[in-house]
Amino acid sequence: MTAQPAAKMELSRNAHEAARRTAPHVTIRGLSKHFSDATIYDNFDFDIPRGKLMSVFGPNGCGKSTLINMIAGLIPVDAGEILFDGQPLSQIKFGYVFQNYREAMFPWLRAFDNIAYPLKVMGVSKSERTARVEKIVANLNVKIDLNLYPYQMSGGQQQLVSIMRALIVEPEILFLDEPFSALDYEMTLFMREQLQRVFVETSTTTVLVSHDLEEAVYLSDRILLLSRHPARAVEFVHYDAPRPRTLQTMSEADFISTKAHCLEVFQREVRKG
């Protein structure tokens, strides 16, 4: 008699945990956004899966960046609801990496203090901040002199610092808006590996906007293909190649067919416009 309610509660908690593990991380419902000359989103629904690296890919101007900017609260929505495990954005910790690292870093702070800055905003003590930055540097095996100012670093180093700044708060979700498009190819390859390593280490739900299909497929578990605006989810492609993926992965049949399929869908959407 007495044990029963406890057992029931135990069961329901387990069920709840299990549901949480498989439930989508972010639910987008009825999202609408108009700019003066165009309707970018009209009653858009989408679920972002938990613990996956998801890329957003689509024709130019279809609203790839607009989507993550609305999810991350950088630009307001006209209508609709975006919830993170049922909670609004204000209740969660998230990281955002900008395309333009030069303008997103604080040039008056050394790289170390740039990484620690979000913790300062949160009111974390100085000693704790230092400890946490040192920890993330060790975890990611970063070999950069963090006493330098951002303008003394290469583009790739700055973007790596910027990714660490986004990760320092241990975010539940990480957004990256074309993070490597301002880097040269050599640095882009290196940074893809860095991002993959971060993802393998932390399994943080990650949303990446990319204009490079090769990059999108290579890095992602899921690829969201958008139509021209008003954007619809044309297809949600799964790509489950094991990690760590290497340059070898890109010559495997699975990768090539996935990429070809995405390209086909993309070109069909482009021609529609």
Binding site: A72, L74, F94, N100, E103, A104, P118, V121
Partner: peptide
Amino acid sequence: ARKTRILAARVMGASRLR
């Protein structure tokens, strides 16, 4: 002031005064 830098501080949860 660079809009991106202000946005960067805002996504970290910095108040207007900060």
